[in-house]
Write a protein that binds this DNA or RNA. Structure first.
Lengths: 163, 163, 163, 163
DNA sequence: TTTT
DNA sequence: TTTT
């Protein structure tokens, strides 16, 4: 017990996401995500290195991905690492490591394609579309992400603050 | 839009958590958490610096905290930063910054106090005790944290892997 | 000991960054960062909530911020929480919580203003401009962020992978 | 450009770490890390799921791992995901995904084995043992993790705060 | 006010 | 192969 398995990525989609529906109504969106880092090698040369991640999202977020993300889209992804095994065509056990997404935030620029009016497609997590009742089981005003308690917004640029 | 506000802390509780019930059944658990870092100053001297965080958890996790955490407990906390404003006794607007917890994992050591049999108190998040139905609205086997899709466990130490 | 104090933010600058030089050559860049989250309240209404963070970066990254960031820029920030106390104009001890930045990544869109040719201003961390020698003390090919070991780039879309 | 590739894990070592010295003085420490999560399946049954991660640390942290970590040790790991390809014994290109560690914090429990007097082995990052000069290139009091600026410690439990 |  |  007592484990944490968290991944945070910011990158661009390598291709349009691939959407599959499994069974009756389980939708999964898969895409590859490139995270590129720049560093200097031993000779002081600036080098670029790209890592490719296999990302998948299940449930309502898959709908959002289908509608708003495409090749080249920049996204923030939060998820967990999962390594699966499978047997390849020669019957040899092989492994693949994927990111099972939990939250997704679209970055840099307005969404395009498919989007209806009055949408705010920028940010999503596993409970985005969960009926309100779902989290209401423990009180009238649960302080979950879905319904934070009211608070006055601090403006950190005010007179008395030394910032 | 398109925001991310995430905090990850590992530290020890400075005091026993303070539990309050607001209204009928909204419970909140508050505690201060010390995160201590060690570094070397300019003279090469090892220096220790402790930051204190005001942490609060709402809902079912508050029950867990009440039962299992106490002064000195080591915990992993995931949450978000929230700055509230309020008027002090002289009517001056002041600010306080707190961590609104979303996940909590108990670290290092057995829980003590209050714990019943067959409990596994180590890890909690906002939906830990949500009735199963809550997340079932989008399919028979939602891939949420509560019900990940089945997968074979990879053994990364096998023959053919160069690790 | 044994502490972790980590903050991850994605948001937009509320104003142009403020640059100060302290002493001879210590530069600090400060800005306010808005992280906006959208959620549904108890009545199912979509509500937007913005948190403002006071962020500061020291050292070489401050130069980058001065050159490339301005009001409205979207950035990824990694840092730690620090609460300082100070005496206000009435001699009352007050507190302010800030994010001391460690890494910064510019998001969504090309940088503008001041940028020279052939620059890759997108990503920065505390050691970005550290002389190569600094990390070389432990070997010819240190595996630090600055000089990862060579590796072939996997293309996760290949034949034999079930992704 | 503009990428983020970050992994945060809390788990237990499956075996004693494996230490290798490459070339003259490059040391690498490798271990497998189990992150276990508990959730409820569709029937409300509590289910436990363990993910195994291949983790490696280079440089001075490898020394620390060699001395203080062993099978069963609980650690916090921060790093990045890296997928390498290699040719297996049949000449087939295969992939392995690993975590390249950047920071490590020992959790819960005293270190054992090898530890000298006056050591504080709990927390480590890539620059822990970097000579002080390394980060001093940009000022007398760099605000890096190694030498944060001085600040008064806030006590959030004071009179006037509503916490 | 924690911890090592 | 860990841990509770």
């Amino acid at each position: 017990m007592a484990g944490v398995n968290k991944v945070i990525l910011v990158g661009h989609l390598g291709k349009d996401p691939e959407i599959r529906v499994i069974g009756n109504d389980r939708k999964v969106a898969k895409f590859t995500l490139a995270t590129t880092e720049t560093y200097k090698d031993n000779s002081g040369q600036r080098v670029e290195s790209t890592e490719w991640h296999n990302v998948e999202f299940w449930g309502p977020i898959a709908d959002v991905i289908e509608r708003f993300l495409k090749k080249g889209s920049q996204v923030f992804v939060e998820g967990r690492i999962r390594t699966r095994s499978y047997d390849d065509k020669d019957g040899i056990k092989r492994y693949v490591t994927e990111i099972v997404g939990q939250n997704m935030t679209m970055l840099g620029g307005k969404p395009s394609g498919g989007g209806g009016a009055n949408e705010s497609p920028a940010e999503y997590n596993e409970s985005t579309f969960t009926p309100t009742k779902a989290n209401n089981s423990y009180g009238a005003k649960p302080a979950s992400r879905d319904t934070p308690p009211p608070f006055a917004q601090a403006d950190p640029g005010e007179d008395d603050l030394p910032f």
